[in-house]
Simulated scan of single mutants.
Amino acid sequence: MTTPILETRNLSIAFGGLRAVDDVSFSVERNRITTIIGPNGAGKSTLFNLISGALRPRSGHVLIEGVDHTAEPPYRMQAAGLARSFQITNLFFDLPVAENLRLAAQVLEPWSLALRPVSASRKALQRVDELLERFALAEKADYKAGALSHGEQRRLEVAVALACKPKVLLLDEPTQGMSHGDTQDTAALIKSLTRDATVLLIEHDIGLVMNLSDHVIVLHQGQKLAEGPPAEIRNNPAVQAAYLGHV
């Protein structure tokens, strides 16, 4: 049996009396799109924070390729092959698009180049060129990130997360606030990412979730309510009562 690329086992955290994530276990298959859905306050972003090392769980484990990385800091999780984007756009708005990407891709270079000129960072610069082309940002490489449209900023943030060539990419509502056209373009882009990485996604657009996902996990009040293929989740009475009926 193939080892899941990402696995959580009985993951839990509480804030005071609130159990924000309560005994959540699931596994993620390699080079597929797994989407986490649920009402606001269900614990989705908190779960991402536990997986990525931003929060330390009260109990439970996070494994990448069968190796326990529970509570390791984000830089160690990145070294293990995990990267993420955030619900709120998180870029260097006063720096050019290309420089945002270059800073993210610099991790591909050996430490021996740390004090060398940027021009010596050939691997990082090559990665920047690849991502500018792939994410349709080449014409705006010299624009400040803050001058991009909202849709372009969200696209750039996904590119930044992908710059370090992660095995697992966590995307927290990457289409939030986008127009319908930008949403469809981003969905196609996310689908293409599975050539290189496994995608774990938080998304509120149910139509997009059902069309894009290979596997869906439903959270409700911090607990896993259901999981399975999109069609099975859509037809699940408990999911309909707790979430889909209110979308």
Rank of each mutant, 00 (worst) to 15 (best):
P4Y: 08
L6E: 09
R9Y: 08
R19P: 03
A20D: 11
A20W: 04
D22Y: 01
V24G: 00
V28H: 03
E29F: 04
E29D: 12
E29K: 15
R30W: 01
R32I: 03
T35I: 04
I36S: 02
I36T: 08
I37E: 00
G38D: 07
N40T: 10
K44C: 05
T46H: 03
L47T: 15
N49H: 14
L50H: 11
I51V: 15
S52G: 12
L55V: 02
L55I: 03
R58G: 10
S59C: 09
L63P: 08
E65I: 02
G66T: 07
G66H: 13
T70C: 11
A71H: 11
E72T: 09
Y75M: 04
A79H: 13
A79F: 05
A79E: 15
A80I: 02
G81R: 13
A83V: 05
R84P: 08
S85T: 14
T89E: 04
T89Y: 01
N90Y: 00
L91R: 13
D94V: 10
D94W: 06
L95K: 14
A98I: 00
N100G: 08
R102D: 04
R102A: 15
L103H: 02
A105C: 09
V107H: 00
V107C: 10
E109S: 06
S112Q: 11
L113S: 01
L115T: 12
R116A: 15
K123G: 01
L125H: 05
L125F: 02
D129T: 13
L132I: 10
E133Y: 04
R134D: 00
A136W: 11
E139H: 12
E139D: 14
E139V: 02
K144D: 04
G146R: 09
L148R: 06
G151W: 09
G151I: 09
Q153W: 02
R154I: 08
E157R: 00
V158L: 05
V160R: 15
A161K: 09
A161C: 05
A161Y: 08
L162Y: 03
P166N: 07
P166K: 11
K167T: 03
V168Y: 02
L169V: 15
L170D: 06
L171I: 05
L171T: 07
E173Y: 14
Q176W: 06
G177M: 14
M178K: 10
G181R: 14
G181Y: 10
T183I: 08
T183G: 04
Q184G: 00
D185I: 13
T186V: 12
A187G: 07
T194A: 05
T194M: 06
D196K: 09
A197L: 02
T198I: 07
V199F: 06
V199T: 14
L200I: 13
D205S: 07
D205E: 14
L208F: 08
V209C: 06
M210T: 05
M210G: 01
M210W: 03
L212D: 05
H215F: 15
V216M: 06
V216N: 01
L219P: 01
A226H: 06
G228H: 04
P230L: 12
P230D: 05
P230W: 09
A231W: 04
A231D: 15
E232Y: 07
I233A: 01
I233G: 00
I233W: 02
N236C: 11
P237G: 04
P237K: 10
A238D: 15
A241R: 14
A242F: 12
H246S: 11
